[in-house]
Design a protein around this nucleic acid. Structure first.
Lengths: 193, 193
DNA sequence: CCGAATTTTCAGTTATTTCTGAAAATAGTG
DNA sequence: CACTATTTTCAGAAATAACTGAAAATTCGG
């Protein structure tokens, strides 16, 4: 690998982290490299920086493009493809979450719903059925919330995140003023009590 | 695999999903099985249900224990170890997030901070330095928010999630009343404008 | 402390994923 | 359309991860 120390350590770290998230090491490294580099890079720049094969880079870029995680550029008087990451970190977060949802959450929700439909309530499936419903409800609650949050402009989102727990007081204060939607059926501590 | 259809399909699905998240398929299957089963299971029950080797189950359970994801039980007049998942789904979510944070986010934060320290501002590192700071700030904001949220009782949390985007109106309404903490340095749309 | 029941470990095997070089495909230029 | 630059594909090699059976370790009742 042919990179200055700061960049190298960064790239290696995200290569490692990537592999814990089911992302292959090289793909993680390519992304990290694009992320900390000031200008668009072409495939050969990446080959040189990371010391992996040209074909590996090609496959890695293809993967990143499938995830919408890199932007494609062309420089004047240069036929080669150049790549960058979005400047805006929040944009990156949004894309990551959105793609992950599309690939993992949505199919899981379909599967859970289909499982609830089929198998018309055999007694030995009772418990499993219940757990599947609970899980589906939980995921629906979380994805519903996410759907709301993703509409927000970055400014508002940062504001909410910064508020943190204080939000609770705001809500508590306005509890009786604002009309709350009906509660879900998810079991909560107070249900048990 | 020796399971009724509903259970089998559920278990297979989460085995698959697991592998996309860097969790090995068998571990995912074991957890899914414990999750939809009404009673604690011992290792041999799992061997029988999933059709994998005893040693594989032993290693899988060890992994799940390291992640705090299973509860350990003993039944009277039985020396074998029995395992279950928490009844409360929210508890499972909390554990998952907490462990993931411990293993992935916290080390990443340390790494980013250490990178910011070292390499005393060589000009060619300027951009990388900036990106690293931005990323660190973003992660700090998110983990700070998470730290706040995890304090909340399930009830309150569900309430907030259910409010969803409406929360924004509440905040907007009380914007001038509640004292907001200082804004972070993360770039936002309005900074650019 | 002995022996049976149970769990864990681990070296070797198998399966899966990643990576490479070479060849094929594609795209741009004159 | 031919030529060159560039990217993509893909079969096989290399690396990694998962899985197994057998043996070792542990636990517990007597």
């Amino acid at each position: 690998m042919d990179l200055p120390p700061l960049q190298q350590e960064f790239v290696l770290h995200f290569g490692e982290m990537g592999s814990r998230w089911g992302i292959n090491r090289t793909v993680g490294q390519i992304y990290a490299l694009l992320f900390i580099t000031d200008r668009p890079l072409n495939a050969d720049d990446i080959v040189q920086a990371l010391g992996v094969s040209r074909s590996n880079v090609s496959m890695g870029l293809k993967e990143l493009q499938a995830w919408n995680l890199v932007q494609h550029r062309h420089l004047p008087d240069d036929r080669r493809d150049y790549f960058t990451t979005p400047e805006d970190l929040w944009e990156i977060v949004r894309i990551l979450v959105e793609e992950r949802k599309k690939r993992e959450i949505d199919p899981t929700l379909s599967k859970l719903r289909s499982l609830e439909m089929q198998s018309p309530d055999r007694p030995q499936d009772h418990y499993a059925h219940g757990r599947i419903s609970e899980l589906r409800e939980l995921i629906e609650l979380l994805t519903g919330w996410y759907g709301d949050m993703k509409q927000l402009e970055t400014d508002r989102l940062v504001q909410l995140l910064t508020l943190g727990a204080k939000i609770q007081k705001v809500v508590a204060a306005t509890d009786k003023i604002v009309t709350l939607p009906r509660r879900t059926k998810l079991q909560t501590d107070s249900d048990k009590a």
